[in-house]
Design a protein around this nucleic acid. Sequence first.
DNA 1: TAGAATGTTACAGG
DNA 2: CCCTGTAACATTCT
Length: 258
Amino acid sequence: MELPDLEVLAGTLEELFKNKTLEKLDVVVGKKLNVSEKELKDALEGHKLLSVEREGKTLEFHFGGGNVLGLHLMLHGEIRLLEKEKEVKYQILNFHFKGGDGFSAVDFQKQARPTLNPEKSESPDAFSRAFSADYLKQVLAKKKVPVKQVLMDQKIVRGIGNAYADEILWEAKISPFSVSNAVPGQQVEELHQAIDNVLRKAIIEISKQHPKEPGAEVRDFLKVHGSKLKKSPGGAEIKIGVHQGRKAYYTDEQKLYQ
DNA sequence: TAGAATGTTACAGG
DNA sequence: CCCTGTAACATTCT
């Protein structure tokens, strides 16, 4: 899950569970936790959920009592609503609220990472003020790795993953394989704008679809990233490259700077 | 059916 | 020390 999915998911969870009291927290898989199971339960049980926020690709559950649970869903983690008589597979954490409803964080890969009171990250979120065009220019100027790698580097900017990196680069008409420090300043400005435009449009699209399950995959509006897509909206054939063991979808409409 | 899948991190090598 | 590339994680879907 990337920034747009998580932004909508945070909002949905807040709507459903805000101001409800966490009656019981089941820790099914605790190996990725930064504290003991008991410490986590002691910190959160009996407290109201005040808000659900997104920080980069992490969800943050803010509870009364001042504690925050960070939850990174990694590659395949999901949130499932807990309903009676319906078994939820691959549970990691189960949140049971007073009144009977709740949700579960699940992950068949067991990689989802819950963190009690996560430290603030130093790198800017893609929606933060600190992520300016000038900042992006400065970072790119220092790097010779492909520009796509920089977009996905959470130490540089938080929230963008493989799928949206492809969408953003198509929007900006820059090849994912462009050498970072070879992209001209004007194009970096357009790239910076494309990041904001693509992510914000995606949030609107995902919200529109109003999926039954919070956080269900909504990818049908992507323009180039997807194995079923053959042509971009401009009619160009979509090419498939590989970068860091993952696919990059792009077209000849995008310029290669090197 | 083997390989890819929206992510991150550890580790090896240069 | 910095940078880069690869494998691993565990299961599902195509």
